[in-house]
């Protein structure tokens, strides 16, 4: 008789005797170990935030300064104004980023409505191209197109008679938040849509057939089947971007910054770079990145709790 048929009901593996819940953990353990080593061990570096750190000297012989660097973020009115300005930029960029994060969803939903296969593939391939170049190269492209002399856009605008002389698009700080967001959309839209397209491909075709039988038109199919099908993915990404609210990264803003637009382009990450790396103040940078991590994790769990209240399910 088949040994499985003997009615043994304990959830134990016959060979090892380890119950299933620990066996699953055991399978995961090598990967959790990697996370421990590469995700958690380097965090001892946060102790540098409490020292007057100079690279090259062992930590034991550094000067202990307590919370000096944390307090230095807000310790005088001038500094406080700076932080206010930087945080305004950071919040603006993050809000615009979250507002535009719905665009890849729309892109994906409408792209799958294109029934000409070669056209769909062409669109998908070419729109992911910008994702594969770094921000430095994006700036190179921006420079070729928008530069003051010989820029393509200036030439076209003058040729069409919309403007009299060259305009220095890249230097002006006007609408810089909007411009940065547009570059972000240009670079990330096609790429961001891939995840949603994959999610749409995973939707059961029978749902569509059933709805068609019930007389649903194209728009109704999109609204009632495709959109709900991508929403789980969207909410996960939304949650992660909310947690990233104060981490905009610095590369994009670093390459686009100049003396004229600096006031409205300097986000927190760039500010930390400008003040600490350029000024060689490593401890200050560590203190800020420590605070950022704490804020992010708090935001993550707050957003997660909100998701539990609103949608009835948690994400992490």
């Amino acid at each position: 008789m088949n040994p499985a048929l003997q009615g043994e009901t304990k959830p134990q593996n016959v060979k090892t005797g380890i119950s299933q819940k620990y066996r699953l953990l055991l399978y995961a353990s090598p990967f959790l170990l990697l996370i421990l080593v590469f995700g958690y061990f380097p965090l001892y570096g946060w102790t540098y935030a409490f020292y007057n750190y100079k690279p090259g000297i062992p930590l034991s012989s550094e000067q202990f300064v307590g919370f000096k660097w944390f307090l230095s973020i807000i310790n005088n009115p001038y500094q406080f104004e700076e932080i206010k300005r930087v945080m305004t930029n950071t919040f603006a960029m993050s809000l615009l980023g979250i507002a535009t994060s719905i665009l890849p969803v729309i892109f994906a939903i409408f792209l799958v409505e294109i029934k000409t296969n070669w056209y769909k593939k062409l669109v998908q391939t070419l729109t992911t191209l910008p994702n594969f170049i770094s921000w430095v190269l994006v700036y190179a492209i921006a420079f070729m197109l928008f530069s003051y002399d010989n820029g393509l856009i200036n030439k076209i605008m003058i040729g069409l008679g919309f403007q009299d002389g060259n305009i220095n698009y890249l230097a002006s700080g006007e609408y810089i938040w909007l411009k940065m967001t547009l570059w972000n959309v240009w670079k990330g839209l096609g790429w961001g849509a891939i995840l949603y397209i994959a999610a749409i491909m995973g939707i059961d075709q029978e749902l569509y057939d059933a709805a068609k039988v019930d007389g649903a038109g194209r728009v109704r199919l999109m609204w009632h089947i495709t959109l709900p099908g991508v929403m789980p993915t969207f909410f996960v990404l939304l949650l992660l971007s909310i947690a990233n609210f104060i981490n905009n990264g610095m590369e994009q803003y670093f390459v686009f910054q100049n003396a004229l637009n600096k006031d409205s382009i300097e986000v927190l990450d760039l500010y930390v770079y400008n003040t600490s790396m350029v000024g060689n103040n490593f401890s200050f940078a560590t203190a800020v990145s420590m605070l950022k991590s704490v804020v992010s994790v708090v935001l993550l769990f707050v957003a997660n709790q909100c998701s539990k209240w609103v949608r009835g399910e948690t994400i992490i």
């Binding site: 959790l32 995700g39 061990f41 380097p42 990233n244 981490n247 990145s289 991590s293």
Partner: peptide, 19 residues
């Protein structure tokens, strides 16, 4: 959660190099 929150940890490059 142990895995997910490491996404938001940033311990800068020097401790990373030492590890």
């Amino acid at each position: 959660r142990f895995v997910v929150i490491t996404m938001y940890f940033n311990a800068s490059i020097i401790p990373w190099f030492i590890i």
